[in-house]
Structure formats: C-alpha cells, structure tokens
C-alpha cells in the first residue's frame, strides 16, 4: 500500500506540538489526584462511617463506568453549571471561553483519584502494623509515623501500580479531543480528516505514545530501584 513516510514524519512533528497539553493535563491530574486519593484511602481504611460509604460509592462509580462516558457527562454538565454559578455569584467571567483543558483536568482527576485511592489503600494494608507500633513507641506522633515510616514504605509497594495508573492516564488523555482539547490525538485526528490520511496520522501518534509511555516506565523503574535499596535481599551475614 505504500506508507507516505514523509507525511508520517510531518504529522509526527505536528502532533508533538500537542505533547505539552497532553503532559500538562497528566501532571496537573496527578498532582491533584495523589493527595486526594491518599485521603480517600485513609477514609476507606479507617471506616469513617457516612464519609466512608460515600467514598466507596464514588470509587465504585468512577472505576465502574467508562472514562468516555465520564468525559461526556462532565462536558455536557460542567460548562452550563459553571456558568450558572458564575452568573449567580455575579462574577464577570465568560465560562465558555475557558480553556477546555480545565475540564479535562477535572474529569481525569475525578477518574484517577478513585484509581489511586484503591492502589494506596491496598498498599497501606501491606505495611506491617509493627512498623506503626515501633514508630509510636519511639515517641513519634501518629502523623509523624505516617509521614516518615508508613507512607514511604507504602509508596514503594504502590509504585508498579502507580506506574500503571500513570500510563493509563496518559493513554486516557487521548480522549480529551471529545472536549475540544488540542492534545496529541486531537491534532492527529484533525490532520487525518484534512488530508484523508488516517493510517499515517494514527501511526505517527502511535509512535509518540510509545515513546512517552516508554519513558514513563523507565522513570518509574529508576525511582523504584532508588527507593527500593532497603529491600535488597539479604545475601549473607
């Protein structure tokens, strides 16, 4: 069939222009979802009554429905909702002129927070109770014990799953075009429709996603190796 390699290369460069948007959404989402997910994991673990039930309902919904539906629901709800709020509050801002990337960040945070909450909950459960007791007996407060002993250990256990979640997030942002965000996929899609060159366009971003996800995996395994030195198996005494 003959691939138009030159066109492929041009689209590749063009789509790379959307990478800052793709990565920006990912970074913003992760910086919101990590603390939120952690809080949610604690709520789930300590069975805070009403809050716990609400939290598990949210986690179940966010993890049990397709992300594309979450995008479509939020995108058909949020702009008009935000507008109503802005009008009622008398703010002089045009909600509809807002960069759609904000909506993307909201949707992906909604989704990723639930995923991370599950990951962190199960990671926290792997930390031996004795670690907390030893920290308390050493005179650390509960907060200090979590910050210095429990969380670092849980984080290490969670890293492979966090890597998965990050990669799923990067892949998930490929649907941001549904919200008119001009990310990597959106640019390729526009190019494909313009030039009727679907195969080359999608091959170009296929390569981009491979590179981005590949680098992400490498980063995670480097961090895991660095942080995991203490886990090195006992060789001999």
């Amino acid at each position: 069939m003959g691939l138009d390699l030159e066109y492929l290369y041009r689209t590749f460069l063009l789509a790379l222009g959307g990478l800052p948007v793709t990565l920006g959404i990912c970074v913003a989402t992760l910086s919101l979802s990590l603390p939120l997910g952690f809080l949610l994991a604690l709520v789930g673990m300590y069975r805070v009554r009403v809050l716990g039930a609400l939290a598990s309902l949210y986690v179940s919904f966010a993890r049990g429905t397709p992300i594309v539906l979450q995008i479509l629901v939020v995108y058909s709800l949020l702009p008009s909702l935000a507008n109503a709020i802005a009008v009622n509050a008398g703010w002089n801002i045009d909600v509809f002129a807002l960069n759609p990337a904000w909506y993307a960040i909201i949707v992906f945070t909604f989704n990723t927070t639930a995923v991370l909450a599950e990951i962190m909950r199960s990671a926290l459960l792997t930390v031996d109770k004795g670690q907390l007791e030893a920290a308390l007996a050493s005179g650390l407060s509960v907060w200090q014990a979590y910050r210095r002993i429990i969380v670092p250990q849980a984080l290490l256990v969670a890293l492979p799953n966090l890597c998965n979640a990050t990669i799923n997030l990067i892949k998930g942002t490929s649907l941001a075009f549904l919200m008119a965000v001009r990310d990597v996929t959106a640019i390729a899609k526009i190019e494909a429709a313009r030039a009727y060159d679907y195969v080359e366009s999608y091959l170009a971003i296929f390569v981009i996603y491979l590179i981005v996800c590949g680098i992400t995996q490498m980063l995670f395994s480097t961090v895991e190796r660095r942080l995991g030195i203490y886990r090195a198996p006992a060789v001999s005494f």
């Binding site: 007791e133 030893a134 920290a135 007996a137 005179g139 650390l140 200090q144 210095r148 250990q153 290490l156």
Partner: peptide, 28 residues
Amino acid sequence: TAFVFQNFNLFSNKTALENVTEGLITGR
C-alpha cells in the same frame, strides 16, 4: 519510655543508624 519488640519491628526503610536517630530527631 522505650519498647523492644519480639519481632524487632525495625523501620524497614531506614538504616540501622536511622532507626536509632528517628525517635531522637523526629520524636524528640
């Protein structure tokens, strides 16, 4: 007070030295 555990419960993410300094620096 101080507590010595049956199964040691050393902080697995800290070196021997850090296990001892943790309660001194962070706790006290």
